[in-house]
Design a protein around this nucleic acid. Structure first.
Lengths: 193, 193
DNA sequence: TCGTTTTCTGACCGTATGGTCAGGGTTGAC
DNA sequence: GTCAACCCTGACCATACGGTCAGAAAACGA
């Protein structure tokens, strides 16, 4: 599964070959087919696993006393996922970019509900005057886009960092920068209770 | 070229076939090979074309009197590109996600220089007290990520918009939201001259 | 120990793909 | 009208891929 995640991320669904995945996992191709009947089935399971992790990051959102903690923790969580699961993030991005042929049902059910719930929560904070009156939907998109950018475009970022991966310190700086700009951008830091 | 851009965007490099591109362009496959010797050559030209458009959007940055106009116009330009060239954006994203095997040299030369220049410009504004002291690099990443998200993840956004593409009005709202949050996030709107 | 179920594997197959090529059209200069 | 340069195309390869299968190992239960 991990081998598959990596290969799918690096080569895309079309570019990935069962042989390559099998080699990377140290298995004969036929044995891989024993566990996963088809390439698509394997791919679907890889994507589903990522979606789970991704949804799980939202827990922080719910148990927060206010927008600064909630959104701040959510950004932290998503940045951590980008760092720890860059391959998964890429597979997800690839899948959505190609029109989500495999996980369209997830988008229409789970993701749609999840999004509606979070938008409502943000709107509540706005109504309470704890956030500037921004459009919650676009705020969410911005958080998704920015945090996932550090995984999906990690190669570009690395190149612009003199070819070296971000250090521990740089990751922290990135997290803080993202949080700072977004939280100030929605007027959240200006109202520390 | 347009057909290729679309096919590469929808299927990825590996998933795209010369036959498909040829069909979409209304050409026999052999004729396509007459103009583009190999699939990779065609792909390289598609990517290069996008990169040009992408760099061109930066012009707005330079001729601006201040950060609000400069960054605001840059965001506008990038949002417009996402809307008008969604396929190109996807191809670019795909290329970078797969480690930029084809355009690594661009990243190391043109993009690196371009980025350094913009970072310097932003830093100048910060030094002049016209912007909050944010990290210019991460600000740039946020702008790239967010604006391109509307192209690359357009399918997801569409799904979350009841399956309908964003209307003229919604695009304007998106642009305004992005600008509002980012500009406020960097303390730019608070200093209207 | 023996039979049965599960796990594994090398060899194989049909298909689709990137790319080639010989030759037929078309155009335009003189 | 002729010739050369360029443009176009159907038919054709070699390869690589996803997937199959017969049967060998291994694991397990009694």
């Amino acid at each position: 599964m991990e081998a598959a995640e990596k290969v799918f991320a690096e080569a895309g669904f079309g570019g990935a070959t069962m042989q390559l995945i099998a080699d990377m996992a140290g298995l004969p191709k036929a044995n891989l087919h024993y566990y996963f009947a088809t390439k698509e089935e394997l791919y679907r399971k890889v994507v589903a696993r990522i979606f789970e992790i991704w949804l799980h990051a939202a827990d922080t959102f719910d148990n927060a006393p206010g927008p600064v903690e909630g959104i701040g923790a959510y950004i932290d969580a998503k940045m951590d996922i980008s760092r720890r699961h860059p391959f998964g993030s890429k597979v997800w991005a690839s899948e959505v970019m190609h029109g989500a042929p495999v996980i369209q049902d997830y988008l229409e059910t789970t993701l749609r509900e999840w999004t509606a719930g979070r938008i409502a929560a943000i709107q509540r904070w706005i109504d309470e005057g704890r956030l500037a009156p921004v459009d919650p939907r676009h705020l969410l998109y911005m958080i998704w886009a920015t945090t996932q950018h550090y995984a999906d475009f990690g190669h570009q970022i690395e190149t612009l960092n003199d070819g070296k991966p971000l250090s521990e310190k740089q990751w922290k700086a990135a997290k803080d920068s993202v949080k700072e700009i977004i939280l100030r951008g929605i007027g959240a830091d200006a109202t520390p209770v």
